[in-house]
Write a protein that binds this DNA or RNA. Structure first.
Length: 424
RNA sequence: GAGAGUGUAGCUCAGUUGGACAGAGCGCCAGGUUGUGGCCCUGGAGGCCGGGAGUUCAAAUCUCCUCACUCUCCCCA
């Protein structure tokens, strides 16, 4: 093979597109229903947007970004996530002067240079929704409910919705000090990997999957018990509202997320049926993000979902994915003299709104009919020189193997009527 | 970044203790019907056996390196 796709990236072939369209369309409908406006930001941002927004010290910034200097000397980075760029746009485009909060939804490719695995790619696609400009716990609740609805509407089956609060600048630092002291006290009982994390990123030790660590920290102090009154109340309201919305949640006191900007609510949704697919959707509140980007204090919350992962989960639940849409009509012809008339007919059909595939390739009728069969078209129009002389064509119903003569004149309109009648 | 496994035609895979031109099924193309698909029959195209180096009289088969994929870990979507 001469050339290969970049490591960890993938081609999305035509037969996979129905799943993708379903994911995109489901998200679009949901955004409309929840009142989100669509925002498209550049795939590239100034590197500083992510350095400041996502945070130095996070895995994403330290080792997973695709950064480069362009020919003009600008430091640019392929977005590893949406939120920082969306906030940058919110600030730069003056969205502070719109009615608050502003609800923004995005969808597109994101890039992280980590080790590829199942449902994990270096270029992957996310859906993203942000509510910027309010601290209201109802915003958090709405996002959790929306993320869960998205999974349900896609048909992902049973989901686990994990929710936690990571506190605020008032209650988190004291807790971190307490946690650090606790962990340092039993550093020798932690796994080697977690020993290093004690100083670098103590919160991450909490959701460690290493057995020895889990055993060692069974009685670790939880932030849940040390939240300040405001955070405690906020978290309680989020849980109540989500529950009222009929979404079942699990409190996950050990859940932390790897991005610096999270405050208060964090949540993750995974498939109960396909736990191997990893986190399907995840998000939380980021009241400090705007200030990290040198903007005025602006609260916000959001979530992102990995489309590849959701499709993976979808396939685990439903094994007969929708087939790509077949054309309505295949247009075949016999003899060079009929080619022009057939080609013109195909164009006329398309202008009438009928999907038509023309028998490309100067093939014989047999080969064209075989192609017609493979495309799945329900109807074939055969333009033959003999019939053409009388202004007629053959109209063949592929499934029924029946065919009849039909006038070429007005055929598009006649077929449109016929297809409308046969449609469910 | 760490560990393990896999890599033969577009796809799914055979290929015996290293031995002569590398195979099957499906798919693709063509013919069997001057102008008709699905089933059947016949034929054809398509592989430097992931790539490179080495061992050997001889390598798809053994060794090393490299690339890609899969699965854990890490991290997350």
């Amino acid at each position: 093979m001469a050339y290969q796709k970049p490591y960890g990236m993938h081609d999305i072939l035509p037969e996979e597109q129905p799943c993708w369209e379903r994911a995109r369309e489901t998200f679009r409908v949901l955004c409309e229903r929840y009142g989100f406006g669509r925002l498209d930001t550049p795939v590239l941002e100034q590197t500083a947007v992510f350095l400041k927004g996502v945070g130095e010290g996070t895995d994403i910034v330290d080792k997973e970004m695709y950064s480069f200097t362009d020919k003009g000397g600008d430091d640019l980075t392929l977005r590893p996530e949406f939120t920082a760029g969306v906030m940058r746009a919110y600030l730069e485009e003056g969205m502070r002067s719109r009615p608050q909060p502003v609800k923004l939804a995005s969808i597109g490719p994101t890039f992280r240079r980590d080790r590829p695995g199942a449902g994990r790619y270096r270029q992957f696609h996310q859906v993203n929704a942000e509510i910027i400009g309010t601290e209201d716990a109802a915003a958090d609740a709405e996002l959790v409910a929306m993320a869960a609805s998205f999974g349900a509407a896609l048909g992902l089956g049973a989901l686990r919705v994990l929710v936690n609060s990571t506190g605020c600048p008032a209650c988190k630092p004291p807790y971190l000090a307490k946690l650090g002291a606790f962990l340092r006290g039993r550093r020798d009982r932690l796994s080697p990997l977690d020993r290093e994390r004690v100083d670098r990123n103590p919160l991450r030790v909490l959701d460690s999957k290493e057995a020895e660590t889990r055993a060692a920290i069974a009685d670790v102090p939880l932030l849940r018990d040390d939240l300040c009154a405001a955070c405690r109340g906020h978290f309680a309201e989020v849980r109540t509202l989500v529950a009222r919305a009929g979404v079942e949640i699990e409190e996950a006191p050990l859940l932390v997320r790897g991005l610096d900007y999270y405050t208060r609510t964090v949540f993750e949704i995974e498939s109960a049926a396909a736990p191997g697919a990893g986190t399907l959707l995840g998000g939380g509140r980021y009241d400090g993000l705007a200030e990290m980007l040198d903007g005025p204090r602006t609260p916000g919350a959001g979530f992102a979902g990995g489309i590849e992962r959701m499709i993976l989960a979808l396939k685990a639940v439903e094994r007969a994915p929708r087939a790509p849409r077949a054309p309505d009509v295949f247009v075949a012809y016999i003899g060079a003299a009929a080619k022009e008339a057939a080609f013109t007919l195909a164009e006329d059909l398309r202008r009438t709104g009928i999907s038509a595939v023309f028998g490309l390739g100067d093939k014989g009728l047999k080969a064209q009919m075989k192609l017609a069969d493979r495309t799945g078209a329900g109807l074939a129009v055969i333009v033959g020189e003999a019939e053409l002389a009388e202004g007629k064509v053959q109209l063949r119903a592929m499934n029924a193997s029946r065919q009849e003569l039909a006038p070429l004149e007005g055929l598009p309109a006649a077929l449109a009527a016929r297809l409308a009648r046969e449609a469910p």
